[in-house]
Design a protein around this nucleic acid. Structure first.
Lengths: 178, 178
DNA sequence: TTAATTTCGGATATCTATTGACCGTTATTA
DNA sequence: TAATAACGGTCAATAGATATCCGAAATTAA
C-alpha cells in the first residue's frame, strides 16, 4: 500500500503558495522548477487541486495558481482527497457472500464487521489529517527550516514574482516569513 | 491508494481458524473453497501469515493452517503488517532538498515536517487496528451473522474436519459458537 | 488583431505493484 | 511407497501510478 506521490508534491506546493502575497500566483513551470519535479505530471495534480477548489487558477501571461482560500481553512485531508479521491483504502469484496455457506444477498443487511472495523481505522487517520491546516504546515516549515534556505527560497520567489509578466508584484517588497 | 486484497482474505481466514477446536487445521484448498477465492494467491498470503508466526502450518496429510496463538493475542495490525509489510503509506522523497533553494544534505537534521505529520496520521490508523483482536472479529461475526449461515458454515466445517485425513477431529462434536 | 503565455482535458505511453498460476522440493502421514 | 500439503521460486496477466503529448480555450501585452 503506497500513497500517491502527487500528494507530497501537492502539500509542498500549497505550503509554498501560502507564502505568496495577495493576488500573486505561480505557474506550473515555476512550481516544478522550485521543487525539481516533473512538470507535466505536476500539472495534472494541480488541476485536481483546482477542481477541488483548493487552489484557483488564472490562464494567460502572469497567470498560474494561488490558494483559493485562507491557508487556515485548507486541511491536509482536503488535499489528500483532492489528489487521491475519496474511496477508502480497504474495499470490502463481500467475501462472506461467497462460498458454500453463503446465503442470498438479501439476507445480508448490515455491512461486514471486518469492513466496518477497517473503515473505522481509516476514519481515525482522516481525523488526524483534518486537524492539520496548510497554515500550520507552512509555519512548521518556517521554524524548522534553516534560515539560509529560507533566504534562498525568498530570493528565488521574489525574482520569479518580479518577472515582467506576473501580476500583483509591481514593486511589492515582502518576506516569506509573514 | 488501495489496500492489498489479501488483507481482507487473511482476516477472514484467521477469523474462521479461530473457530476450530484445538489441534485442528484447515488446508489452503479448504480455505479457498470456503471463501471461494483463488487458491494459489491465497497460499501466498497464508505463507506470509506463517512467516509472521500468526498461523502455524503442518505439512502432509491432515496438515494445514491453524492459529499460532490465542485469537485474543492476534490484532488486525499484526495481520495487516504481515501481508503488507511495515513500510508507511507515505514516503517522503525529501522534496525540500531539491530545486534552486536546496542546501547540502548535511544541513537537514530533522525529518521534514510534512512527513512527520503524515506519519503521525498513519500511527493513529495503526493504533486503531492494534486495538482489535481476531477474537473480537470472530465474536462480531457470530452475533451479526444470520443464524442459518452460521449453521451452514458449521456443517461445512464439520464435514471437512471429519474427513479421514484431518487430525484432532475423531468424533469431536463442537460448535462454531464457542 | 496578433503573438505569447498559461491552464484545461483527453489520449496515450511507460513503469511498477498487485494478482494469479505453475512447478519442483520438502515434510508428513498412512 | 504413495498421497497429501506447505514451501519457495519463477513467470504471466492485470491494474494502478507515473509521465508525456497535443489541441483547445482563455488571458495578456504589444
Amino acid at each position: 500500500m503506497k500513497m500517491n506521490e502527487g500528494i507530497e508534491w501537492a502539500i509542498h506546493c500549497c505550503s509554498l503558495l501560502a507564502h505568496l502575497p495577495d493576488k500573486a500566483a505561480l505557474s506550473v513551470g515555476a512550481l516544478s522548477e522550485f521543487f525539481d519535479i516533473p512538470q507535466t505530471y505536476l500539472a495534472k495534480n494541480l488541476q485536481l487541486l483546482s477542481r477541488a477548489k483548493i487552489v484557483s487558477s488564472a490562464k494567460g501571461p502572469g497567470g498560474g495558481y494561488r490558494l483559493a482560500r485562507n491557508a487556515r481553512n485548507i486541511s491536509l485531508l482536503d488535499i489528500v482527497q483532492a489528489i487521491d479521491g475519496r474511496d477508502p483504502c480497504f474495499r470490502c469484496t463481500e467475501i462472506r457472500q461467497r462460498g458454500p455457506s453463503a446465503l442470498p444477498p438479501s439476507r445480508y443487511r448490515k455491512p461486514c464487521g471486518i469492513a466496518r472495523t477497517m473503515l473505522k481505522a481509516e476514519q481515525a487517520w482522516r481525523d488526524e489529517l483534518r486537524k492539520v491546516s496548510i497554515l500550520e504546515i507552512k509555519e512548521l516549515g518556517i521554524t524548522e527550516t534553516n534560515p539560509s534556505q529560507t533566504r534562498k527560497a525568498e530570493e528565488w520567489l521574489i525574482s520569479v514574482l518580479r518577472s515582467p509578466l506576473s501580476k500583483g508584484s509591481s514593486g511589492t517588497i515582502y518576506t516569506l516569513q509573514k
